[in-house]
Design a protein around this nucleic acid. Structure first.
Length: 313
RNA sequence: GGACGGGUGGGUGAGUGGCUAAAACCAGCAGACUGUAAAUCUGCCGCUCCUUGCGGGCUACGGAGGUUCGAAUCCUCCCCCGUCCA
């Protein structure tokens, strides 16, 4: 019963080289990749979400990519379930799971579990959105204060998205968010998790981000977006909210030059990277590396970390 | 050479005598976040000191001087930028 299977997590901000490191380690250790990225689960959104093209996967299977169509809603809970399935499969085949994680919430959902809360209800949400449109976010916040004062105190009055979720839980479950959370969640069992964090110097990360955005444009990002529009993917589809996709789509729609969006996309990506770093800093038990994932030093250091977990004494 | 317009904190830019370390926005930094999370939201953002307070000191609105109890705001001269006339 005490045989814990090794599980490797590579986490870090966008453009820090998680994919490269993951593939490298997978090759050396007989692993397969579990992508933990909320955007890569969407099919047809490839370039801007930085999916690793098949030609660069070096034969390493990449799981949890292209799971749903652009019009579908995908949640952390679904991610968790799909990931658990993959983990079972790898365990059966005796492969080392390597999670490359850019989406902190999804990683936490998988590793720590989620509370037993109801899934989102579009009807309910639409009603709440209507209320916000009519009476402003403060009104909804007051409602939450009546229903669940404890949670209302923790959410900013203008944070409509989180307020909606809290009210939704309270109404659907009939219990406060606090109660549900206190009931606990089921963390991933049976694995010895080893976390490797990539944290390159900020300035270098930022210039890498800038360069990557430019490279994505050269790689045909705009054409991809145009293709999605032509295919009839609705403007309201969630992946059209993603960094870059919204900027490009918007310019394409008004027949502007999408290249003009580059600085804005770079900016948004840098800020995103910052938020990722903020999130991951809190992640417990991370062995931080200060270089990029494709840096030989980082690879060597990561191998050492991975090795200790691969052979538990 | 002349006539206007303009020079404000990292950027854009408001401010035309006190309520202004100077709106707002952007950038930056820090943070929150258990089912939209590449989302959503919060704080800080001249320097400095401490008894960390709607606290003290210093510096700041092109430069130098001046008026005034008090100036980014008024006056003088100078420098620079833009447009137009020569």
């Amino acid at each position: 019963m005490s045989e814990l299977a090794p599980l490797l997590v590579i986490l870090g901000p966008t453009a820090s080289g998680k994919s490269a490191l993951g593939i490298e380690l997978a090759e050396r250790l007989g692993g397969e990749i579990l992508v933990c990225d909320s955007t890569q689960v969407y099919r047809h959104f490839d370039i801007g979400t930085a999916k690793v093209p098949l030609s660069e996967q070096r034969g390493i299977p990449h799981h949890l990519v292209d799971l749903v169509e652009p019009t579908e809603v995908f949640t952390a809970g679904q991610y968790r379930q799909r990931a658990l399935d993959v983990l079972d499969d790898l365990r059966r085949r005796n492969k080392l799971p390597i999670i490359t994680a850019g989406t902190g919430l999804y990683l936490r959902a998988l590793l720590e579990g989620l509370a037993d809360a109801p899934t989102r209800s579009e009807e309910l949400r639409e009603r709440m959105r209507e209320r916000v449109r009519r009476h402003g976010p403060a009104s909804l916040h007051r409602l939450l204060k009546r229903l669940d004062p404890e949670t209302a105190a923790r959410i900013a009055p203008r944070d409509t998205q989180k307020i909606i979720r809290a009210v939704e839980i309270r109404i659907l479950a009939g219990k406060s968010v606090g109660e549900i959370h206190r009931a606990g969640r089921s963390a991933l069992q049976g694995y010895e998790v080893r976390r490797i964090g990539l944290l390159p110097p900020r300035a270098r990360l930022y210039s890498r981000i800038d360069a990557r955005v430019t490279a994505m444009m050269k790689a045909g990002w705009c054409a991809e977006v145009q293709g999605l529009i032509d295919k009839g993917v609705p403007i309201g589809a969630k992946p059209f909210q993603f960094i870059g996709y919204s900027e490009i789509r918007e310019r394409l729609a008004r027949r502007g030059d999408p290249e003009e969006a580059i600085p804005a996309i770079q900016q948004a990506t840098r800020r995103f990277a910052k938020r990722q770093i903020t999130w991951f800093r809190k992640e417990p038990g991370v062995d931080w590396l200060t270089g990029f994932g494709d840096d030989p030093d980082a690879v060597a250091a990561a191998m050492k970390i991975a090795e200790t977990s691969a052979q538990p004494a």
